[in-house]
Design a binder for these strands. Structure first.
Lengths: 198, 198
DNA sequence: AGCAATAGAAAGATCATTCTTTTCATTACA
DNA sequence: TGTAATGAAAAGAATGATCTTTCTATTGCT
């Protein structure tokens, strides 16, 4: 019994992987189906048998990435009780993703999905960022960090971290984020912890 | 002698204004020349007599916006001598732009220009962000803020501010930035000023 | 043999850009 | 002052390339 070299599942994920890389590299609209066909070796017909259309392909990639991230985040959050440790778990996860899977990270965070995905919750409304806000809110109740609007706190903390990711992905910041996590974590923490007046 | 209703300069800037709005609203690639023709009332022929092609139109909009921002920033920086005041001038400018000209701000900061402009310095490499880094570097020399890599400091400070802008433009943060400048300025300042150990 | 999976040509739409025609302010001249 | 010539500017139809998606013929496994 000879198996086909590529099972449908394999091919489907090959198409997704190829498309993800091309989308990030050249932008969704600059990647045509024929381009994906050439790059993946999977035919037009096969692609359209797996995905309703180009947008559905983009959407499926996005959903998969976000699901995985959410799971990983939940896993890392377990056992953490301190505000600082929870926030640090978030930063570690984000930085690890960035260094290990920069393309995934770029697709998740910095593509303007609304431009090509019609039903797409913006990432800033998505689960992980709600969770961070929740952690910060609890931290304020416990007096671990300074009192303020939880949106402002969330913006400030994630702002430091996500800008680090952004400039790392753009190769403006040229050092490993995981190796320099202390610096960014400190700054992000100080942003939500201290008062200027103190 | 009757003048034409619209001089070429007027029409050219009308096209730019229309295109800017459409690009931000729907994304560069989702806006065709015929769309701009319909929305502006300027014909295809006229548009192509002003701009070599669609990309040149996009580029001219970008250059104009960036030039104006640079000038405004220089102007606000004059007379400022303290590190804090210089940084605050940056934040005030950015927040004012965001509230008064959200579309301009979005085009300047959050469009993925590399996807449609071939010769385009990424914004994070551009003049204003170099200046912020320079201010931070001087602040460290003067011991106004904590010692650290100036890239890390720049990322942290602008991270807080730009994420505020991003979420404000996405209508996730629903309050005026100019009215809440104190909160964000404090957090951004604390990020670069204090040490966790202190 | 039968059938799902696949390939790739073809269809149909849309886009950026070009090109020809028309318009209109200005100038030259009567 | 009135009129015709001129050429830059503008309009919009036409072009050709390219894109997404569909469709039909073929493949290869069971």
């Amino acid at each position: 019994m000879t198996l086909r070299k590529k099972t449908p599942e394999n091919k489907m994920s090959l198409v997704q992987k190829t498309a993800l890389n091309l989308f990030v590299q050249k932008g969704y609209h600059n990647v045509s189906i024929p381009t994906i066909v050439k790059a993946s070796g999977v035919s037009t017909g096969a692609i359209y048998s797996y995905f309703k259309n180009k947008e559905a392909l983009g959407q499926s990639i996005y959903n998969q990435i976000l699901d995985r991230f959410n799971q990983d985040f939940s896993a890392r959050l377990e056992e953490k009780t301190e505000t600082y440790d929870k926030l640090r778990a978030f930063v570690e996860l984000v930085f690890n993703y960035t260094e290990q899977d920069p393309i995934v990270m770029e697709y998740m965070l910095f593509m303007r999905h609304a431009e090509f995905l019609h039903e797409c919750t913006p990432i800033c409304h998505s689960e992980p960022f709600k969770v961070v806000r929740q952690i910060l809110w609890e931290g304020m109740q416990r007096q671990d960090i300074k009192q303020q609007d939880d949106f402002v706190a969330g913006i400030s903390f994630t702002g430091v971290i996500l800008r680090a990711v952004e400039l790392r992905l753009a190769d403006v910041y040229r050092h490993s984020l995981t190796e320099n996590i202390e610096s960014f974590m400190e700054n992000a923490w100080c942003a939500v912890k201290y008062r200027h007046s103190e």
